[in-house]
Design a protein around this nucleic acid. Structure first.
Lengths: 254, 254
DNA sequence: TCAAAAGTGTTTCCCATACACCCATGC
DNA sequence: GCATGGGTGTATGGGAAACACTTTTGA
């Protein structure tokens, strides 16, 4: 792709060098990230920032940032943004959806490519980025009005979020719930992917699905889906620290 | 969303009115569309256009066009583009993925939001749009080197396609194959959604999955998945035109 | 001894797959 | 009568779900 120009005719090179990219009015492009984690109380939660500038100043939002054209890919914009907010690199980001209505940002037409990140709470170092006064984890909860977010006594309803971020988060949760059944997403949320017990994994599934699962059935499907396919290895060790029967430790491969 | 400005402070209004969207270099944004159909010979095929201008002049590509910022959403850009190439409106478009590497287009950084459209061949009026000299349907075929495209005696290999369109098409096919198992996508490819036989539907599944299916099992899963859930209705009529046992006709609801 | 997590065994039902077979029609 | 597509019945096997049960530990 990089050396396309090397095989060009003079005529085409001339075209490329004089190409005017301003023929069409261009939108701004941002990436926003829905960062999920499992908190100390085994609840599914996500990172919200409090906007420090206009628009939606003071409102809560998911972190995001502008793509700098020519300098980085949209994936790289998302990675950079994730690092700024959490101090994390080499986290697997999954592209969720692209939002592009002209009026979704009051400043100008902003096309937002949204990513989902799954990060283990233990590695999280939350910091407020450039445009934020605060950054916090919120539990994902439900009541009759649907989704809301909770940190201690602070409650945030869908309507309190900036831009169309409530829609974005709802889509991200829906997708996460679906993906958990056929992708290995849950492993990304483990404190330690190379040494975990079946019940630690089960708790993650329960948090995401928001219901309790049958122990016997969970372990059977764990053995079938992961152990027998070689994606998970039995370490042959046990976790003996807790006040209960020692549990077998497993390791997630790649 | 539209009346955000009505609830603003003077200070914020001032900010919005003087907002400079040129702080960051902006990429161009396009939508490209992978248009699938089932041809006369019951083969899965897609629409390719032959590029009339630089870059990749003369190469085959999927149709696409630039988003005009402020005037339309990315969905609308895709709808407009689909209409220009096929004369079709009100076709369901599914967003596939967004591609955003800086060098994927030699002109400038182009972020492309790719959509998939499933259209019945009978309604297709193929026309070459602005930037194309030709537009044709190509069968999707496989050999040892993987994917290629075929129209009569014309063969196009992955390497012959413009930009990163080979990657895009491969992803679109993969996604279509997956979706067919849990979404009602196949119905969109029927000649007539409100009057079809089980075997017409079966042929579409076979084309997409690229293998033959068991008759008895297909009808059982059809009854379970669609008829009993009310998404498909038995018309109580039969198709009697062909030289064989008359087949029951069904209607897809919504 | 008891709570709580860790782990086992069994039964039931649904669904995917395979396959053998019959039916109606036009040529 | 026969090719072709239309349509039925049955058997097998695996997985999801429900549930009853045992084991091990620290407090």
């Amino acid at each position: 792709m990089k050396d396309y120009r090397k095989n060009c005719s003079k005529e085409e090179l001339e075209y490329l060098n004089t190409y005017d990219s301003g023929k069409y009015e261009k939108p701004s492009v941002t990436t926003d990230i829905v960062i999920f984690t499992i908190d100390e109380e085994d609840d599914l939660s996500l990172l919200l920032i409090r906007r420090g500038g206009y628009p939606y100043k003071g409102s809560w939002a998911i972190p995001g940032g502008f793509l700098e054209a020519g300098k980085e890919s949209i994936d790289e914009t998302a990675e950079r943004e994730l690092f700024e907010e959490t101090g994390l690199k080499n986290i697997h980001l999954t592209q969720l959806y692209t939002f592009g209505k002209p009026d979704r940002d009051p400043r100008t037409h902003v096309v937002s490519v949204v990513y989902t990140a799954l990060v283990p709470k233990t590695q999280l170092q939350i910091r407020a980025g450039d445009d934020a006064t605060e950054a916090k984890l919120f539990k994902i909860k439900y009541d009759i009005d649907g989704l809301y977010f909770k940190n201690g006594s602070v409650m945030i309803s869908k309507g309190d979020l900036a831009f169309d971020h409530a829609d974005i988060i709802e889509l991200a949760i829906k997708r996460l719930r679906n993906r958990i059944d056929y992708e290995a997403d849950a492993f990304a949320l483990l404190k330690d992917r190379s040494s975990f017990t079946i019940y630690e994994l089960k708790r993650i599934y329960e948090s995401i699905k928001n219901r309790s699962l049958d122990t016997a059935n969970f372990r059977k499907s764990f053995f079938r889906s992961y152990l027998s396919s070689g994606r998970v290895r039995d370490r042959g060790e046990k976790r003996e620290d807790a006040g209960r029967k020692p549990a077998e430790l497993y390791e997630f491969i790649a």
